[in-house]
Simulated assay, not measured.
Amino acid sequence: MSQLHTGRVVSSTGNHCVVADEAGTLQRCQLRHRQGARPVCGDRVDWHADDGTAYIEQIHPRRNVIERGDFRGRPRALAANIDRLILVVAPAPTPDLLLVDRYRVLAGAADIPLMIWINKTDRAEGAGSEPLQRLTDQQTELGLPMLRGSAETGAGIEALKTWIHAETVILVGQSGVGKTSLTQHLIPALALRTGEISEASGQGRHTTTDTRLFPRPEGGCLIDSPGVRTLRLDHLSVRDVAAGFPDITEKAHACRFRDCHHLEEPQCAVQSAIKQGQIDPQRLMNWRRLITETGGADSNQAQP
C-alpha cells in the first residue's frame, strides 16, 4: 500500500468525500465499501492513493458528533469533532424560545459547548426587544455565555473571533437572523473556497452539499450545515431532553410525587418555582413539548 496521509473531511456526499491536508490542499477520496461508518464533515481520516485514485482507509475516533433524526426517527450523522455551537439570535425575527431549547438539548446530548451570539444590536429597539430580553434573562440565569454585536456594522466581531480562536464552530439559528452575514465576516474567502470544494468533488463549481467545513484566517474552522437548521430531536432520549432543562429537573426532585406532571398536583416544587419567578413558565411548556416528541408520555420518565 502507498503512503498513508491524514486529513480532515470538508465535504461528504454519495460514495466520495473531499479531504483537506494541513496545508489546505484538497483531495477527492473514494469510500471503501467495507467501511461501516461513513465519514462526515469534520472527521479526521487516513487516506492513500492507488493507481491515481485516493481511498479512505480509516476514520479517526470522534470526540463528538451532531446527529439529527430522519423521517423515521433514526439518527443521521451530520458533522463531527466540533468545539462549539453558536446560536445566532436577533431582535427580528422574534426569538423562538422553543428552538433555543431544542439547540440546548442537541448541544448537551452531543457534549458540545453552546453559546449565543446576539446579532443586529444596532436594531435592538422595537418589537423584538422584549422577547429578546426574555431570552437573555432565561439563558443568563442558566449560565449560557453570550456575546453581542452586529454583522452589518462589524461591532463585536473581533471579540467573537477572539472567543472562538482555533475552534471548530457551527452557526445555527432561525432564518433571517444574519448567519450568512456573520459567516462572511468569519470566512472572507467563502465564495472562493466553496468553488474549490465543488471542483475537488468533481460535481462542478455551482454544486452545493449539505455540510461543508471552511478554515478561518485566524485559525480554527467553521462548518456550514443547513441540516442542523431543520432540527428534529426524536432520535434522542427523554433523559437527553431532561438534561437540557436543569432548572426544571433540579426542582422536580422536591416534588411530593415521584410521577408529578407539574400541572396541578399538590406540593409541586416546579409550579412553586414558577410562581416565585425562579423558572420561566415558557421553559416548562417547551420541556413538555420536547419530552412528548422524544416518546415520553409522562413527566416522570424524565426524572433522573
Rank of each mutant, 00 (worst) to 15 (best):
Q278S: 14
T153Q: 11
V238A: 15
D298V: 14
C17R: 00
L99E: 12
P95D: 03
D247T: 13
A110D: 12
T53E: 15
K161W: 06
C260H: 05
A297W: 14
V40E: 00
R62Q: 15
A166G: 13
G295W: 10
R84D: 11
G7S: 15
Q139L: 15
D234A: 11
P281M: 09
D234W: 13
P217E: 04
M146G: 04
I223M: 04
H165S: 11
H16Q: 12
E152W: 07
Q267K: 08
A127S: 07
D137C: 08
H33D: 11
P113E: 00
L192V: 09
D234P: 03
Y55D: 08
R288D: 06
G36E: 15
R229K: 08
R212E: 06
I118T: 14
S11K: 04
V172P: 01
I116N: 04
R229V: 03
L106I: 14
P113H: 05
P113C: 01
G36Y: 11
Q133F: 13
G154T: 08
T6R: 11
T208C: 10
V40N: 01
A252T: 07
T136F: 06
V9L: 03
R134K: 14
V10T: 09
P217C: 07
L31H: 14
T13Q: 11
M285T: 11
S129W: 00
T121W: 14
G154M: 10
I66S: 03
A166K: 15
V238K: 06
D247A: 12
P217Y: 03
R205V: 09
F257H: 10
L106F: 11
L182S: 08
D259V: 10
E218I: 04
V270P: 02
L222E: 02
R32K: 14
D224E: 15
I291Y: 06
I59N: 02
R205P: 01
L236D: 05
G154R: 08
S201C: 11
Y55R: 09
P188L: 09
D122Q: 07
H33I: 06
T13H: 13
E218T: 12
C260P: 06
P131A: 14
Q139Y: 06
A254Y: 07
E152A: 10
V100K: 02
D51M: 08
R102E: 04
N64A: 12
N300P: 00
C29W: 02
G149Y: 05
N81E: 01
I66H: 05
G219T: 05
F214V: 00
E167Q: 15
W287P: 02
K120N: 03
R32M: 11
G73Y: 07
V9G: 02
A110N: 14
A159W: 00
G36L: 10
L132S: 00
A302K: 04
L97C: 05
D83G: 14
W47P: 02
V19T: 12
A159I: 00
R289S: 01
R232V: 07
D210M: 09
P281W: 09
H165L: 09
T6V: 13
D240G: 08
S12Q: 04
E57N: 10
R283W: 04
P304A: 08
R232C: 06
L213T: 04
T94C: 13
L106A: 15
F245W: 02
T6P: 00
W287H: 06
G69W: 03
G178N: 06
H235C: 07
E158P: 00
R205N: 04
T6G: 08
D21W: 09
